[in-house]
Write a protein that binds this DNA or RNA. Structure first.
Lengths: 214, 214
DNA sequence: GTCGTACATGTACAACGTTCAGTTACTGCC
DNA sequence: GGCAGTAACTGAACGTTGTACATGTACGAC
């Protein structure tokens, strides 16, 4: 829609960034990547539809790039929430849970993009992975769990972290798909989840390691 | 594609069933409702594309009907798994967990359909709900949790059941979106989840009710 | 000035969901 | 038997989608 001057020579990549900016912005409004059309993105960027293909092989590649951005935004939010409770790992874990659900609630389009699956039939299933930011973010969770347990980042901490994450994601996902579902209030639910799993982990650790309980 | 004789008078509704049958079957192959086109469904049913609109207002209504079927299939699977362990609620809970993940793994299209969100902008958000079968299925989970705790189906049992469900759904969803994620093996993961949450619930119950532990 | 190339645009196509007017064939009525 | 009525379905067409391919345009180097 907007008038736009062509980029100077050597600066063609600027359009790539612009397209990503615009697409991310639009995604915040439509709440679903499938609702985000190539034409809507390019037109909002002030460019012809086919200009997108100078910077992305197809829409899928655009979406993948958007996913990375959304993941980074989520990571930022979680990091901030946990940093506020630095020194109190249990409290940090709860804060992360609230931040996670808040992000999913307030930015449903971005959140959904992270978990979006493009099931083209010619897909290489091993291709899909947790992007760099993703694994880093998850590692923060594992660290927090480990320090709650007062133990190194072993398999137990990892397993507990996966349970916390999947439960949070599950609640976010169910809330989106079935807004009517009568979830318990967020605070008590997260409290139950976090302390339940951490306590179980601590008990298991005591049994195997023989370390004293607090 | 197939040749097809028109239905006799008064039996027009048969096509509705046929379309649902065919669509459900195709969905098992394509793994994504968005990949399921009206034309593919109608052509597989041996009928013109527009015939679908004699029985469904739009594709959305078709998808909604499919969702109900998929939910019923999931419920059937869970019921069967839990029935096998009748009398041992903890074991039944674990079996349900395995059955749940197995369903999501073996019928990804059906499973995804259950949680599919049609985010048309003219949506009534309160409209989306856990269908009849859905709430029933969940109620079974609540019952199992309650009998693990040896207590009535109170808020605790409900809250624990939501955590179990969301964690299971979360794992299924993450596995689909990020097949590379290194989850702990299913058996130990479910064991940790179920016993962790149930133990926590039992401990909390003891504290509030003062009933003896077993 | 004119040439090469980086940065785009314009046209076109097949597939999609959907609308609406039209066709087919069975049923009850005279 | 003929004919109207209607249930069951088709065909053509529209706007939108992702995308391929040919084309245009302006700037820096010679």
């Amino acid at each position: 829609m907007e008038a736009r001057a062509r980029n100077p020579r050597g600066e063609g990549d600027r359009l790539r960034t612009t397209l990503l900016d615009v697409a991310t912005e639009l995604l915040a409004e439509v709440h679903d990547v499938d609702q985000l059309s190539v034409r809507a993105v390019t037109s909002a960027a002030g460019v012809s539809p086919t200009a997108l293909y100078l910077h992305f092989a197809d829409k899928d590649e655009l979406v993948t790039a958007i996913k990375l951005r959304c993941f980074a935004a989520l990571k930022e939010r979680l990091d901030a929430a946990m940093a506020e409770r630095d020194g109190d790992p249990l409290s940090a874990l709860r804060a992360a849970g609230h931040a996670y659900l808040a992000f999913a609630r307030e930015q449903p389009g971005w959140y959904a993009a992270i978990f979006h699956t493009n099931f083209r039939k010619d897909v290489d299933p091993g291709e899909y992975r947790l992007g760099g930011d993703g694994m880093e973010t998850f590692a923060v969770l594992v660290t927090a769990v480990a320090s709650c347990l007062g133990r190194p980042e072993d398999e137990d901490a990892f397993a507990i972290a996966t349970i916390l994450w999947t439960a949070l994601h599950g609640r976010a996902s169910v809330t989106r798909a079935m807004p009517g579902f009568p979830f318990p209030d967020e605070r008590s639910w997260i409290e139950r989840l976090v302390s339940g799993m951490v306590d179980a982990g601590a008990a298991a650790g005591d049994r195997t390691a023989g370390s004293p309980a607090d």
